[in-house]
Amino acid sequence: MAKVLVVTSGKGGVGKTTSTAAIGVALAQIGQKVVVVDFDVGLRNLDLIMGAERRVVFDLINVVQGVAKLPQALIRDKRLENLCLLPASQTRDKDALTEEGVGRVLEELRTSHDWILCDSPAGIERGATLAMRFADEAIIVTNPEVSSVRDSDRIIGMLDAKTVRAEKGERVEKHVLITRYDAARAARGEMLSIDDVLEILATPLLGIIPESQDVLRASNVGSPVTLNNPASSPARAYVDATKRLLGETIAMTIPAERSGLMNLLRGRRAA
């Protein structure tokens, strides 16, 4: 049965779009039929991170308003045939999204996909509330930093109160994904630890994505990190998180950045 998964956070810049793209690719690589949907109307970026920015013709709002049919707006990934992107509109404003319209589009996507990943905009306004409205599951992307944790707590409260599932008395299954984690700084007491964040948010952990240069390199070239450099530490962490999402039990390790002279040389060459 198809699952609608919202990737949300409250705070901006914590890695929602990066995580949506990386997990979308990882799910598709495992053989799942995946569509990633950009809800950030006016500030779309998922197309850019996916490397499909020059292929956008129609968008979510065109489909919601009936200007385009869903198959016309879906962009099939050139590298993975079971991965699609539904871009957001760059020119319209977020009020063009209606709850009824979004619900209809998601229902149609459910018939032809296993996973529908909704990339939420930052904030708690219309775009963010609609992105989570129909979710079955949620990934709350959090940086180990006070403002991000506070906003995540607020979003968790909204997931428990303002989603269709919550209103029916059902639960949205929630997972915390900690990104930009620096194990060395946490060990020195300079950064909130994983345990600190989990104790405060009281929500199960899906994965720990280490701070890494590979993430920027992947977005530079428009290829999600799980596709661009599968051996890198963030890619391995995203793949582990994706497997946990599918119900596998995988030990929670914090992939370390490779270090040493060889890596320095390799890094130079790759960069």
């Binding site: 006070v146 506070r150 707590d153 607020r154 007491g189 300079e190 909130l192 600190d196 405060i200």
Partner: peptide
């Protein structure tokens, strides 16, 4: 280490906000 301060501030704030 500043992380314990971050943790305590968050715990107090969120207990209230919730």
């Amino acid at each position: 280490p500043s992380a314990p301060i971050a943790r305590e501030r968050l715990q107090i704030l969120l207990a209230h906000e919730r």
